[in-house]
Design a protein around this nucleic acid. Structure first.
Lengths: 345, 345
DNA sequence: AAAAAACGAGCAAACGTTTGCGTAAAAAAT
DNA sequence: ATTTTTTACGCAAACGTTTGCTCGTTTTTT
């Protein structure tokens, strides 16, 4: 009843040729005569032969598997990136091993270890928020397992990475609001511990000064990304002596919280206060009042580029991998996209 | 520079023992003397030896990998299920290979084929919406690869599955609304082609008749899950001669669309119209007006149970796998949960 | 017609690990 | 003191595939 998968050996025995001949025939190796080749291929087809990937991996010492370590699968950004990575690598016959760190450093370390032990050929990593040590990545270097970081990049020298330049988008965001006539623009930023917060702030400041507007530090308030703290941040801004008519927020969630709070304060979100945020997640399509624009970070593109780089690294790894002098540092520009959806009544 | 992973052979050579001794020592096999055992383990530790999973898989003919095929990673339901599956299987030293069918039958077939070829030990599948043929699952049976279906179950005999009983939740939902005093309750259902639609309808009808209310078929309207079609469905219900004061919707998205539409019609969502939906996705936490309650389907639990079953199947598979007479049919009861969040002003 | 080149295919090792079987030495039983 | 049992370890095959090397046969070149 239970079928066993066909092997090269069986084919060889039936055809009275050697296993090496069968192997070569299936790979269309030129030293095998055309008649033998066809004979072998026909039988393989008939028997439903499928190469045992496991045996091949073992033999070749590589698994054709790339590991992906991300903080959270459920975050729209990462699932989009994963889709891109899958699409890109499947084309080149690699499979993808996905694991979530849940933004926990300890878990991330374990995962790196596990991935190394399961002999993945390479890794794509977006580091956890809490990660502060980086020695677990050294091990990968020692064993010559190439890594490409994406989106969340560790502060290390000599690494490959794909990141998103927040500055462009930030400047665009502020410019957009200035053009719309706003003169007092607030920023509800994330916690200072996040690199992303710094970049957003930089962009904000740069845009202000470039437009010869005096930059008022008190128009920048931080929040820790919770609903409550977003509310407080908004309250602070609303109490400002130069009460802003527009606010840039750290991400869509913060915008959402702030908008909700603003509405409960009966603020007219069409006339008196406008929001621009980062990320552009699907949720904004479901909001009654959404930010008027978002800074898109192109998760699919980032995933794609990261995968491309890793594949390239893997293909050239064949020989000398020690003398990697060139490190890929790809930066994709963020971009402001207007929210096409109309707000509710 | 580039280190090679340590092998059992090297350890054996250094210690002047045979590879089999090393292998057994590392497994704490009782026939190996305690001194040798410690010696071996110490050196292994020192050399940072990690067994080559690939070689082991090859040798044992099993990969300690289970494949998971789901429609969409980005759907909250599935990412929760995945997390459960990972948590459950990691404990037993299995790794998880995730793949998305994107609700495409063709893709699903390819994935099943790929999973088979990469010799996964077992599969967890939630079938694509469009899947109408089921022969690709036969192959798995032929090769004795156990499969546990979850959430989206194919209409086949003799399969293992974990599903959610919608009826309980549906009845609860209607009862809940009746208790709140509603006498005319509408249902915006999904397309008739989906099994899930049938179950929701069943539950709805059952709850009505159990409460000795005459069931009015015209209070059930279908939609195809798009925003536009949800709007039309709502319009239909609102024009009903016995205009409903409460509506059960196929899922949170439909609720969302309907609520949005209702608000644009200036309907008072606190007094004149209330919604209950299925799923209980995170998005409802972000809605200005959310359904008052949702039927929770426990994705984490479903994933967990499915994984447990598969692991059990795998552990007993050691010998006779043909005579599987007993099929696991686990049904988790859906449950109505009240939405604790207050609506906006 | 002899020598050289090209062709077609087989042999065997290798990848790292597990495991059934065999066996020498030590311990226990007679 | 001999036989039996136990202890502790080694031998070698096996898993499926790839690939460098060898070698006989045919074809081409001189």
């Amino acid at each position: 009843m239970t079928e066993k998968p066909a092997t090269i050996k069986e084919i060889a025995k039936i055809l009275n040729v050697s296993v090496s001949t069968v192997s070569r025939a299936l790979h269309k190796h030129p030293t095998i005569g055309i008649t033998t080749q066809l004979k072998v291929q026909a039988l393989a087809e008939k028997m439903g032969y499928e190469p045992n990937q496991n045996a091949i991996s073992f033999q070749k010492g590589k698994t054709y598997t790339i590991g992906v370590i991300i903080p959270e699968l459920s975050e729209a950004f990462f699932s989009a990136a994963i889709s891109a990575i899958e699409d890109t690598t499947h084309k080149r016959n690699y499979t993808v091993l996905i694991a979530q760190s849940h933004d926990d450093e300890e878990k991330e370390i374990q995962l790196v270890e596990k991935m190394k032990n399961s002999r993945v050929d390479g890794l794509l990593i977006s580091v956890a928020k809490t990660t502060s040590g980086f020695t677990h990545f050294d091990m990968l270097k020692r064993f010559n397992i190439p890594v490409v970081f994406f989106d969340r990049i560790p502060p290390l020298k000599n690494i490959h990475y794909v990141a998103c330049n927040m500055e462009t988008g930030s400047i665009e965001a502020v410019n957009y609001l200035l053009k719309k006539g706003h003169r007092s623009i607030g920023l509800i930023n994330g916690p200072a511990t996040l690199a992303a917060s710094g970049e957003r702030k930089e962009g904000y400041i740069k845009a202000m000064t470039k437009n010869r507007l005096k930059f008022d530090p008190s128009l920048i308030v931080s929040c820790n990304l919770t609903e409550q703290s977003a509310q407080i941040a908004l309250d602070t801004l609303l109490a400002h002596k130069r009460r802003p008519t527009a606010i840039v927020t750290f991400n869509d969630y913060v915008s959402l919280y702030a908008i909700k709070h603003a509405r409960s304060l009966k603020i007219d979100l069409d006339k008196d206060l406008q929001f621009v945020s980062y990320a552009n997640l699907p949720i904004i399509n479901y909001m009654d009042y959404a930010p008027v624009a978002s800074v898109e970070q192109f998760p699919y593109l980032q995933g794609q580029k990261a995968a491309d780089i890793l594949l390239d690294l893997l293909s050239r790894k064949t020989q000398s991998a020690d003398e990697v002098q060139a490190y890929y540092n790809v930066v994709v520009e963020s971009q402001l996209v207007e929210n096409k959806k109309k707000n509710a009544v």
